[in-house]
Deep mutational scan, measured.
Amino acid sequence: QVALSRTQVCGILREELFQGDAFHQSDTHIFIIMGASGDLAKKKIYPTIWWLFRDGLLPENTFIVGYARSRLTVADIRKQSEPFFKATPEEKLKLEDFFARNSYVAGQYDDAASYQRLNSHMNALHLGSQANRLFYLALPPTVYEAVTKNIHESCMSQIGWNRIIVEKPFGRDLQSSDRLSNHISSLFREDQIYRIDHYLGKEMVQNLMVLRFANRIFGPIWNRDNIACVILTFKEPFGTEGRGGYFDEFGIIRDVMQNHLLQMLCLVAMEKPASTNSDDVRDEKVKVLKCISEVQANNVVLGQYVGNPDGEGEATKGYLDDPTVPRGSTTATFAAVVLYVENERWDGVPFILRCGKALNERKAEVRLQFHDVAGDIFHQQCKRNELVIRVQPNEAVYTKMMTKKPGMFFNPEESELDLTYGNRYKNVKLPDAYERLILDVFCGSQMHFVRSDELREAWRIFTPLLHQIELEKPKPIPYIYGSRGPTEADELMKRVGFQYEGTYKWVNPHKL
Rank of each mutant, 00 (worst) to 15 (best):
Y481G: 07
M270C: 14
Q446D: 01
I389E: 00
Q296L: 15
Y479W: 03
K272V: 07
R424E: 03
E361Y: 04
S278E: 10
V373G: 06
R451V: 00
E365P: 02
P350K: 04
T330S: 15
V496Y: 13
T324G: 15
Y481T: 08
Y421I: 12
G303L: 02
T463H: 02
A269M: 04
L368G: 00
T487V: 15
E472R: 15
M401C: 12
L353V: 08
P273Y: 02
N385W: 03
P323T: 15
P350E: 02
D490S: 08
P476T: 12
N360K: 06
P406S: 07
D490G: 09
R456Q: 12
K494E: 15
P309V: 14
A358L: 04
V341R: 05
V397H: 00
Q304S: 08
E361V: 06
H467S: 13
P326N: 06
H260C: 01
F410L: 14
M257I: 10
D322G: 05
T324I: 07
C291F: 10
E457N: 08
V450K: 04
C291L: 14
L353K: 01
P431S: 10
V391K: 04
A269C: 12
C443T: 10
M402R: 00
H379Y: 14
Y305R: 02
V349P: 03
D432V: 07
R456T: 08
E361F: 02
D322S: 05
G348A: 05
R451M: 02
I377R: 07
K405V: 12
I480F: 15
A336H: 08
L261I: 08
T420P: 07
M401G: 00
D432I: 07
L359E: 05
D279Y: 11
V450E: 04
R456G: 13
M402D: 05
K290D: 08
N385E: 00
N259W: 02
G407R: 04
K363E: 07
E314T: 12
R436H: 07
E413Q: 14
K287V: 07
P486Y: 02
T276Y: 00
M447I: 12
E312F: 14
S275A: 06
D418H: 01
T330K: 14
T399S: 14
E312T: 11
K285T: 04
T324R: 09
T316G: 12
M402G: 05
N360F: 00
T316F: 13
H448S: 13
K357P: 03
P406Y: 01
L368S: 01
V366M: 13
A332L: 02
D418P: 00
E491V: 15
A489E: 06
H260W: 03
G356N: 00
L261N: 00
V325Y: 08
V388H: 01
L320V: 11
L320G: 11
V349E: 00
R354K: 12
E435G: 09
I377M: 11
Y434C: 00
R367K: 01
V256P: 03
P323Q: 11
H467N: 14
L437W: 00
I389S: 01
V306S: 15
D279C: 10
L455D: 05
E395A: 12
Y398F: 05
Y340Q: 14
